[in-house]
Simulated scan of single mutants.
Amino acid sequence: MSCFSGKFAAIVLAGDRGPDDPVASASGVGCKALVPVAGRPMVLRVLDALDASPIIGPRILCGCSSRLLGSSAELDGLVADGRVSWVENESSPSLSARAALASVPADQPALVTTADHALLTPPMVDHFCGRAAESGCDVVAGLARADMVMAAFPEGRRTITRLADGGYCGCNLFAFLTPRARNAAIFWRRVEEQRKHPLKIVRTLGLLSVLRYLCGRLTLEQGLDRFSALMDARAGAVWMPDAEAAVDVDKLEDLRLVESILARQAQRKQP
């Protein structure tokens, strides 16, 4: 990896549930990242958006080589000639993120996103990374307001986290801005290991914070403060102005939604 260039390194997580993934299976490909969207594999759409952003430097793809490589000559060429670096994925998203982050100099900021972020655009990347860099935080997540997302795509079902000051949707955009930010990946792994044990999660997050959330009294700022204390890294959020930033392809209905969004966008561009 080259020395710090003043730009973000971009990490694309391309792990999936294997050939049994319903989106991959329905599309006849061996890996969800290779599912074509508007005729182009999702992972290449994401890499295209990152390549077109002036704020992005090296691009790193983290996935399963036996399923992802050898099926797309274009992707194989990007990896073979070094335009995209390759990191083999681990057994979970948090471990994969840690493995990929280990290939980035500790003083270089890193953007982490996913290969199924099929609607990602250079302006989204620029907005998120630019605002994250100005935040003064160690680690930052991209969020979209739930009312904006649901108004834009009432036909889609999105995961909404409802807090005292409103609901939001995640955008699969994370910025690791400082060496201390690597603590967030370690904390992510702790939560991942405890996901099937609610009492352990309560102990990790703190009973008071959990009760506030369950009673609808936890604000986003309070939640970020709590995570900051647990991770020993200051956590922040960037509000994304585009509802499309909150849409990824996790289910077949998501794939249909993304295809319809791109079709509408193409129609609007026609003279």
Rank of each mutant, 00 (worst) to 15 (best):
P122C: 11
R40T: 10
E90P: 02
S91E: 14
A38P: 13
V37T: 11
E88F: 02
C31K: 14
S71Y: 03
L50P: 10
V87Y: 01
M124I: 15
A106N: 02
I55W: 08
S92H: 06
D48E: 08
G39D: 13
A26M: 09
S72N: 09
P93F: 00
A100R: 11
R67W: 09
E74W: 11
A38I: 14
S71V: 10
V79K: 00
V46S: 01
A52F: 00
S103Q: 10
P105E: 14
G39F: 10
L101P: 06
S27E: 09
C31F: 05
G82F: 07
D116S: 05
A24F: 03
L119D: 07
G77S: 12
P41C: 10
L50Y: 01
A106L: 00
S92D: 10
V43P: 04
A102E: 10
I55N: 06
V104L: 06
G77D: 07
L50E: 07
A26Y: 07
E74L: 15
A99C: 01
P122Y: 09
E74T: 15
P93W: 02
L111C: 06
L101S: 02
I60V: 10
L95H: 06
N89I: 08
G30W: 00
T114C: 13
G30T: 01
E90L: 13
G39T: 15
V37I: 14
R59C: 01
S94R: 00
P93S: 10
L120N: 02
D76I: 12
R45Q: 04
S27Q: 13
D48G: 06
S27C: 11
P93K: 06
N89P: 15
L44G: 04
A106K: 08
G57N: 07
A73E: 13
C64Q: 09
I55E: 07
G82I: 11
M124L: 15
A115M: 12
C62F: 01
N89E: 14
L75F: 00
L69V: 08
S65K: 14
A115S: 07
A73K: 05
M124H: 12
S94Q: 03
